[in-house]
Simulated scan of single mutants.
Amino acid sequence: MMAYVKRGNLEKLNIGSNDSRWDKYIKFANATIDNPSVPIDEKLDVHLRGNSVHIYYKGGRILEIKRNALNLDYNYFYSKKEHQNIPRTWMRYMFDNDQEELRKRNISPEKCLSPSEVKRVWEELQEKRDMLLAMKTPEEYFKEAAKIMDEWSRALLDDSDIKHEERLLQQRISVCNRHMEETDFIVLDIEFAVTNDKSVSYHSEKYLHPRFDIIALQPRKNFRLAVIELKKGMGATGLKGNGIFSQGVKSGVLDHIAKFEDTIGSARGYREFVQEMDEVLSMKVQCGVLPVELMGIKIPVEKPDFYLAYAGSGMEHFKGACESIGQPCICITDERQPFLKL
């Protein structure tokens, strides 16, 4: 297993120094955030990973910046419509000739591609991806890549993919909540995946890579950290008609609280997590992702607060259920401009 590289550690990238080849991509993305003529769903959202930078667009990763290369997942180029409505993930089973998995999915033999045909599909996707990555300027690259991501996003929305709708909302939240005069929370990170590297104090022995939707600062609470789990609709909340959250529902509310208490909210782990987020904060200010007014802010070394954020119908029912277990809830009433207000 690779040793965990903390988020915000960009030593190998030379970001912000004179010899960085990639600064212009980050600057271009940042400029979309502050430009009011760029619609909210077309803004480019920059987040830091260990020794790489991810730029998100419409709930997907439009660009990954690594030390020696730019990258884009070629799967974004895959269109179900062009391949007899076969989901992309099923191609793997055809390539491996995995009869059991194909049977489970009722794929008729005439729909099945041979391993060599699947390989050709993948090679075509990679070729398209490589042509795009060869573009010389951020302007050209993002303009063409956005067309691919628009198609990908539209196809998921046509399928009423609730997870994708949630990701779009998560990204709008990230884009909107940057300035302390407008919100109770400043978004610092999204999709925080907990490492299973045992040398990191907040790793979990119990859960495999728990993920948390949003990590934020609370300017009204001396910049104490907040961990926010976003729910759009009742689907994956585990909330029953009687107003009680069920135990044992994967990705349900109680499941998220348990994972938080076991990892980045645990007595053994929260200090190291706060330090890591402190690095992310100073690096994001340095890279121009977060406003300069946050320069020099230190995050207090205290256990983060855990919040649920809810959008969709049944809000009062959800809020009441949260209150009954003493769980603070942020209600999102405007999904186009989702400022996080308590």
Rank of each mutant, 00 (worst) to 15 (best):
K232A: 00
K232H: 05
K232S: 05
K232W: 01
K232M: 00
G233P: 00
G233N: 03
G233R: 01
M234K: 15
G235F: 00
G235C: 00
A236T: 07
A236H: 07
A236G: 14
T237Q: 02
T237R: 05
T237Y: 03
G238K: 03
G238R: 03
G238Q: 02
L239W: 07
L239S: 03
K240A: 11
K240C: 02
G241D: 14
G241M: 07
G241R: 08
N242A: 02
G243D: 01
G243Q: 02
G243S: 02
I244R: 08
F245I: 01
F245V: 01
F245R: 00
F245K: 00
F245D: 00
S246H: 04
S246C: 06
S246P: 01
S246Y: 01
S246G: 06
S246R: 06
S246A: 12
Q247I: 09
Q247H: 14
Q247Y: 13
G248H: 14
G248R: 12
V249Q: 02
V249L: 06
V249S: 01
K250Y: 11
K250G: 02
K250D: 08
K250M: 05
S251P: 00
G252Y: 10
G252R: 13
G252S: 09
G252I: 13
V253M: 08
V253I: 15
V253R: 07
V253W: 05
L254V: 14
H256R: 01
H256A: 09
H256L: 01
I257Y: 13
I257M: 15
I257E: 06
I257W: 10
A258M: 15
A258E: 15
K259P: 14
F260D: 09
F260E: 10
F260V: 10
E261V: 13
E261G: 07
D262V: 03
T263D: 09
T263S: 15
I264S: 11
I264A: 12
G265R: 04
G265Q: 05
S266R: 02
S266G: 04
S266K: 01
A267V: 06
R268T: 05
R268S: 09
R268L: 04
G269T: 12
G269C: 13
G269R: 12
Y270G: 06
Y270R: 08
Y270C: 08
R271A: 14
R271C: 14
F273W: 06
F273E: 08
F273T: 11
F273C: 11
V274W: 07
V274H: 08
Q275R: 15
Q275V: 11
Q275H: 14
Q275W: 13
Q275S: 15
E276F: 08
E276S: 13
E276C: 08
E276G: 11
M277H: 09
D278S: 15
D278K: 12
D278I: 05
D278P: 06
D278Y: 07
D278C: 10
E279M: 09
E279G: 07
E279S: 11
V280T: 04
V280Q: 05
V280L: 03
V280W: 04
V280K: 02
V280I: 14
L281K: 11
L281T: 09
L281S: 13
L281W: 10
L281C: 10
S282A: 02
M283I: 07
M283Q: 15
M283K: 14
